[in-house]
Nucleic acid binder design. Structure first.
Length: 355
DNA sequence: GATTCGTGGTC
DNA sequence: TGACCAAGAAT
C-alpha cells in the first residue's frame, strides 16, 4: 500500500500548510482571505484573472497600483472588453511585458463575445484564452473556482526542489517538480492551497536566506535535512547580455505638441507609444530623422536594460514650426501628452530633455 | 526546446 | 555597477 500511504502523508502535509496559511496568509487586494473564504465568500474570477496576468514575472509590489487602477477604471470584464486599445496600453505603461496588455484585451473581448461575459470554469476552457498559459489557467481554476488544479510557478518550483532535494537544473526538472506538486495538491481547499504554496515560497522558502525555522514543512524537507536549501533550485547558466545602440528623436512643435509613433503590435514594446527612432542593434545606428529640423544631440544617453540586452540610446531633440509635416509619427497635443503613457525606456529619454 | 519579451528592487 | 530575481506565455 505504498500508494495509499503516500497519499495519506501528502494530505497531512497539505493540511499542515493550510493551517499555516490560515494564520499567515498575506493580505492582497485581489485575495479573499482564508477566513472569508471559509465563510462562503467567493473570489471574483475577473479580479483573479487580472491579478494573475499582472503577476506574471512581476512582483506583488509593482502590481498593486496597476491592479487598483485597472479594476477601478474597468470594474468588469465587459467594461474592459469595451475599452479603447490605446487606453489599455497607456494604463499598462511601465509594468512591462506588453504582450500581456494586448492579450489582456483580446482575452476580455473573447470572454465578453464568446462566453457571454463569464469566464470558462474548466482548465481547458481557461487555457484556450489569449495570454492564459498552464500556470494562469491552473491558478484561476483553483483560486476562482476551487478546482483541484496544480499551480506551478517559480515559487512552487523552488519549494518542490527543496522539499525533495532535487538537484536536476531547471527547466529540465520542471516535469519532475510538477509531479511533486501535483501529488501534494489539496482536494479539500484547492484555492487556498494554491495561494498557500505560493505564499510559502514568497515569504518563507525565499530564493535567498530562506526562513527554514518558521517553515511548516521543515520536518518534511529533504533539503533542510541535508542543508542544501541555499543551492536549490539549480538553474541552467544564463547568457550575458550584449549592448545595443540606438537613436531616439524627441521633436517638440512650437505649440508644445510632441511627435510620437505607435510601435507595431509584435516585437519589443509592441503596441506601445514611443519616440521615433533608429533600429536598436549592436552596430552604430544610421541617422534617420523622422522630420526635417535642426537637431541637437544631448550629452547624456538614456541607458536601459531589457530582458536580453542593454540599450544605450542617443537622444536628439528639435523644435519645429507648426506647418512642418513629419515623415513618421504623429504630433500629440501638449494637453493630451503624458509621459506616463510611455514605456520606461521612452520615459528615460524624455527625462533627459527636462533635466 | 530555445528565444523573446520589461521593469524595479536587491545584494 | 552588474547580475540575479519576480504568481510565464507565445513562438
Amino acid at each position: 500500500m505504498i500508494k495509499g500511504m503516500s497519499a495519506t502523508r501528502d494530505t497531512a502535509q497539505a493540511a499542515d500548510l493550510l493551517t499555516w496559511y490560515d494564520r499567515h496568509a498575506r493580505e492582497l487586494p485581489w485575495r479573499v482571505s482564508p477566513a472569508a473564504r471559509a465563510a462562503g465568500v467567493r473570489p471574483d474570477p475577473y479580479r483573479v484573472w487580472m491579478s494573475e496576468i499582472m503577476l506574471q514575472q512581476t512582483t506583488v509590489a509593482a502590481v498593486k497600483s496597476y491592479f487598483e487602477a485597472f479594476t477601478t477604471r474597468w470594474p468588469t470584464v465587459s467594461d474592459l472588453a469595451a475599452a479603447e486599445d490605446a487606453d489599455v496600453m497607456a494604463a499598462w505603461a511601465g509594468l512591462g511585458y506588453y504582450a500581456r496588455a494586448r492579450n489582456l484585451l483580446k482575452c476580455a473581448r473573447a470572454v465578453a463575445d464568446e462566453h457571454g461575459g463569464v469566464f470558462p470554469q474548466t482548465l481547458e476552457g481557461l487555457r484556450a484564452l489569449p495570454g492564459v498559459g498552464p500556470y494562469t489557467a491552473a491558478a484561476v481554476a483553483a483560486i476562482a473556482f476551487d478546482l483541484p488544479e496544480t499551480v506551478v510557478d517559480g515559487n512552487v518550483e523552488r519549494v518542490m526542489a527543496r522539499l525533495h532535494d532535487e538537484h536536476m537544473p531547471l527547466p529540465q526538472s520542471k516535469p519532475v517538480l510538477t509531479g511533486y506538486a501535483a501529488a501534494l495538491t489539496s482536494q479539500g481547499r484547492p484555492g487556498d492551497y494554491a495561494q498557500a504554496v505560493m505564499d510559502l515560497g514568497a515569504t518563507i522558502c525565499t530564493p535567498r536566506n530562506p526562513a527554514c525555522g518558521l517553515c511548516p514543512w521543515r520536518t518534511a524537507c529533504a533539503a533542510w535535512d541535508r542543508g542544501t536549501q541555499a543551492e536549490l533550485p539549480k538553474k541552467a547558466p544564463k547568457k550575458r547580455k550584449p549592448t545595443r545602440h540606438g537613436i531616439a528623436y524627441l521633436v517638440k512643435r512650437v505649440d508644445g505638441a510632441w511627435l510620437l509613433e505607435r510601435r507595431p503590435d509584435s516585437g519589443l514594446l509592441g503596441g506601445m507609444l514611443g519616440w521615433p527612432g533608429s533600429d536598436w542593434s549592436e552596430e552604430a545606428p544610421a541617422d534617420a530623422p523622422p522630420i526635417r529640423a535642426e537637431w541637437k544631440t544631448l550629452n547624456a544617453e538614456a541607458r536601459h536594460t531589457f530582458t536580453h540586452f542593454h540599450l544605450r540610446l542617443t537622444v536628439k531633440t528639435a523644435l519645429v514650426p507648426m506647418e512642418r509635416r513629419p515623415e513618421r509619427g504623429e504630433f500629440v497635443e501638449a494637453e493630451v501628452f503624458d509621459a506616463g503613457d510611455l514605456p520606461t525606456v521612452m520615459r528615460k529619454a524624455f527625462a533627459l530633455t527636462t533635466g
